[in-house]
Each structure stands twice: as structure tokens, then as C-alpha cells.
């Protein structure tokens, strides 16, 4: 009996141990960190090339993220930080390549393919329309009729 009361008391006290404080923010400046993350998502990691530096945990990605954070904290704009990285690593770091001489084909390529496909389709359709407009002479009509009629007759048994 005494054991049961003790156990009940113990259980009644249990919720008190479930108390914890609010989670503290992981970074000192959440607003800055949000900007860092947003910019990091459009910068490509050069080590694991199909990840952004926000996703990658490669050493270089960590370093570049630290650079982005440091420079944004120092008051640079997003564009200035991007320029800084492009000057060192080239356009390859950008997931959104700029439109210029060497990337014209990249940007215009899909539209060119679509247009050439449409042009080809138009050409085929117009040719088909022309071909179906063939007119037969009276002699050809008679021959065609004869052929069709002979085809409708039952085949003589061999």
C-alpha cells in the first residue's frame, strides 16, 4: 500500500521534470543568417558540383559560407558578394548563369529548338496539304473506278 502511494506521488511529480526552456536561436543574428542561406542557395559548391554551398558540407562550402556571412555582416550587398566569388571561381559558381556572349546558346537554345521544330512542322503540313490537292484527269478517274469495282467483286475460287 505504501509503495503504491509512493509510486503515485512520484508519477504525479513527473510533469515537473518535463519542463524545458525555449530553444535558443543557433545563430547570433537570425536575420543575417537568413540572408546568408538565401544567397548560399544560388551559389554552386565546386567540390560536390550538384549541390549549392547551402546544402554541401564540403570544407570548401563551409569556408565559402563563412566568407558570405562575413562579407554580408561587413555591410556588403548580395551583388558585391556574388561578384567577389565570380572573380575567383568564374560563372561556374552561379546556378543562374548570366546572359553573355558565351552563354547565348545556353539561353537561346531551347527557343531555337522550339522554333525550328515548329518551322519543320509547318513545312510538313503545308506540303501534305499540297499533295492531297492532286486532281485526276477523266481517264484516271475511270481507271480508278474500274480498279475499285474489281476489288469489290468476290475473288474467284481457285
Amino acid at each position: 500500500m505504501l509503495r503504491r502511494i509512493a509510486l503515485t506521488l512520484l508519477l504525479a511529480l513527473a510533469p515537473l521534470t518535463g519542463f524545458t526552456a525555449d530553444a535558443r536561436p543557433l545563430v547570433a543574428d537570425p536575420a543575417l543568417e537568413a540572408r546568408v542561406l538565401k544567397l548560399s542557395e544560388v551559389l554552386r559548391c565546386l567540390v560536390c558540383q550538384n549541390q549549392s554551398i547551402a546544402e554541401s558540407n564540403a570544407d570548401l562550402a563551409l569556408d565559402l559560407r563563412a566568407q558570405v556571412r562575413e562579407q554580408l555582416a561587413a555591410g556588403k550587398t548580395e551583388d558585391q558578394v556574388v561578384d567577389y566569388l565570380v572573380a575567383r571561381y568564374g560563372d561556374f559558381v552561379l546556378y543562374d548563369p548570366p546572359l553573355k556572349g558565351t552563354t547565348v546558346l545556353l539561353w537561346a537554345g531551347p527557343a531555337l529548338l522550339l522554333l525550328s521544330g515548329l518551322a519543320w512542322l509547318g513545312w510538313r503540313l503545308s506540303r501534305r496539304a499540297r499533295e492531297s490537292g492532286v486532281t485526276l484527269s477523266a481517264e484516271q478517274h475511270a481507271r480508278a473506278k474500274q480498279l475499285l469495282e474489281s476489288a469489290n467483286e468476290p475473288e474467284p475460287r481457285q
Binding site: 565546386l46 567540390v47 570548401l60 569556408d63 565559402l64 566568407q67 575567383r88 568564374g90
Partner: peptide, 13 residues
């Protein structure tokens, strides 16, 4: 040591 000059040279591998 901190890889800063490496970044300036565009070192990635």
C-alpha cells in the same frame, strides 16, 4: 591555415 588565400586564388581541389 584558414584557407583565405586559397579562396583568393580560386582553389577548390
Amino acid at each position: 591555415a584558414d584557407g583565405r588565400v586559397g579562396i583568393d586564388f580560386g582553389v577548390y581541389g
